[in-house]
Amino acid sequence: MGNIKVTVNHNRCVGSQLCMHFLPDVFDLDGNGQAIVCGLDDTDVTTLVQTAEQCPQCAIKVEDESTGEVLFPPAELGM
């Protein structure tokens, strides 16, 4: 696995907390009730992508920094 980067777009996040429930070690809430990434530890990339998929707002982006590839959201969602 390359360098995986996970970001939450706060112009999209509505604070559904789903990411936090699916991956409590990776996601937390900030003082505004929006999701933040608190650390990826050894979470595998498939789990990260599956969790990003659960976001109703497509606010979570998963990228492979070493290749620049966006692993989520897929291009066909037009996000």
Partner: peptide
């Protein structure tokens, strides 16, 4: 854009059928 409206609500009850 951006347009972080609340039409589907926010928080844990954000509309399930929003997508």
């Amino acid at each position: 854009d951006p347009n972080l409206h609340v039409a589907f609500a926010h928080g844990i009850h954000v509309c399930l059928g929003a997508s």
